[in-house]
Simulated scan of single mutants.
Amino acid sequence: MRLDTLYTAETPEGIALSLRPAGLFARGLAYLIDFAIRMGIFVGISITVGMLGKMGFGILLVAYFCLEWFYPVIFELTRAAATPGKRVMGLRVVMDSGLPVTPAASLTRNLLRAADFVPSFYGAGIVSMLWRRDSKRLGDLAAGTLVVFSDQVSLHGSVPAAEPQAPARPLTAREQMAVVSWAGRATRLTPERFDELARIAQPVLGPDTSAGGGASASQRLLGVAQWVLGRRGGGAAQTRGGTTR
């Protein structure tokens, strides 16, 4: 079984997001990059305040605390939703729903790194990531967050295959665009939402020509989308742009 597999989240608008959780290797490399950056900043501060005696030591302790606990939070709340290490590895932090991470969730997942660290060297976190298909560590489980690959997703895909079906009436150019746009989102919408939107277009659906007459609204509208794209079934009257002639 692969460590990185697809995770599907549904937004409040009914859009299905296909996310690819990042596994142990990618997240481990991102952590090492961030660790090197934090150590570089810490060494720089140490050199700067080294001549201030006890006051400098106090500043150094505060700097270490901020780097250890707030370095990830600050970067995760930016638009990139990722620390520099995660950005190098093409990762980002999101909520389980696929929405941007919230301040409370980011703070929770990072404070609980202490639990992931036990008994040593992030032992509990590594076991959790290897055990779960979504590669969540304990902090992610508590905060409801997910570390995913930030690959760009196309809003419109190819129109699913369907038997071409003429519309019940001629379609305007705007209606044709709406039907094709809807069909191109088949992989991004949940089946329930996809069919719900298709039922809104009932007035343009022709008679159900499927065997047994049991085709759903979405199947029939996909046939109209194929018709609008110029694909014709055998024996069907020729049309142009969704209007018969």
Rank of each mutant, 00 (worst) to 15 (best):
G144N: 08
T145H: 03
T145E: 03
L146G: 00
L146R: 00
L146Q: 02
L146I: 08
V147C: 02
V148P: 03
V148L: 01
S150Q: 07
D151M: 05
Q152W: 13
Q152A: 15
Q152I: 12
V153T: 10
S154G: 12
L155V: 07
L155I: 00
H156F: 14
H156S: 09
H156Y: 13
S158Y: 11
V159F: 00
V159I: 14
P160F: 07
A161M: 01
A162E: 06
A162L: 09
A162S: 10
E163Y: 15
Q165P: 00
P167H: 08
P167M: 09
A168L: 03
A168P: 01
A168N: 11
A168R: 09
A168D: 10
A168E: 06
L171Q: 05
L171V: 08
T172L: 04
R174K: 14
R174G: 13
E175M: 07
E175H: 09
E175G: 09
M177T: 15
A178V: 06
A178C: 06
V179R: 03
V179D: 02
V179W: 07
V179H: 07
V180H: 09
S181K: 14
S181D: 15
S181P: 03
W182Y: 13
A183N: 10
G184L: 07
G184N: 10
R185G: 07
R185Q: 15
R185W: 08
A186S: 15
A186Y: 14
T187M: 12
R188Y: 04
L189D: 04
T190Y: 05
P191S: 01
P191G: 01
E192A: 14
E192M: 06
F194T: 05
E196R: 15
E196C: 07
L197H: 07
L197F: 11
L197K: 08
A198W: 06
A198F: 06
R199E: 12
R199Y: 01
R199H: 05
I200K: 14
I200M: 12
Q202N: 11
Q202D: 12
Q202G: 10
P203I: 03
P203V: 02
L205Y: 06
G206L: 05
G206F: 05
P207H: 11
D208Q: 10
T209P: 08
T209V: 14
S210M: 04
A211F: 11
G212A: 09
G212F: 02
G212W: 05
G212M: 00
G213Y: 01
G214D: 10
A215P: 03
A215D: 04
A215V: 04
S216Q: 03
A217E: 02
A217H: 06
S218L: 02
S218P: 02
Q219G: 07
Q219A: 15
L221I: 07
L221Y: 01
L222M: 11
L222S: 03
L222C: 03
L222A: 04
G223W: 03
V224K: 00
A225L: 02
A225G: 04
Q226V: 05
Q226C: 11
W227N: 12
V228C: 08
V228W: 01
V228P: 02
L229D: 09
G230A: 01
